[in-house]
Amino acid sequence: MATAIAAQTHTITVLVDNRPGVLARVSGLFARRGYNIESLTVSITDNPNMSRMTIVVAGDADTLEQITKQLHKLIDVHKVFDYLDTPMLERELVLLKVQSEPERRAEILQLVEIFRGKVVDIADRAMVIEVTGGGDKIDSFEKQMEPFGIRELVRTGRIAMMRGSRTV
């Protein structure tokens, strides 16, 4: 069942009990079954007893099927949603601290504009820029910033939601 295609990635949303140890159970499952996590975010939800995990995994359809089924077996897991054939929104946020010599600021600000980012802090020789969007957009923003000198960077990891009125 192995495929030669470079590993695809899938986004899954997992609703779990908001309880200590749950993250360890989920990440432990991925580790011991050899599933690759590209990113994982955990957040609160509108229900205080529930947390929402968004996990980006690498693997083919068979792997995704197994991941989904194995996740369901964890007692803390209420729902697993894999967005297959579902229009979805995906977002990440990056905070990027870039070297900004006074003479190059304008250039940087122009790029920030194009990416609809925001300057959230500024100092003599550096500024911090915030950009949100899909992973590709953020990748390319990073690339644009590289020539100026990226001093520090942090990304949130992906969050996802279905389009339309349906909910997970």
Binding site: G21, A24, R25, G28, L29, R32, K73, L74, I75
Partner: peptide, 14 residues
Amino acid sequence: ITGITMPITKHNWL
């Protein structure tokens, strides 16, 4: 022990 047995139980509780 809940940490240790996490992968070898269906579920565990402290």
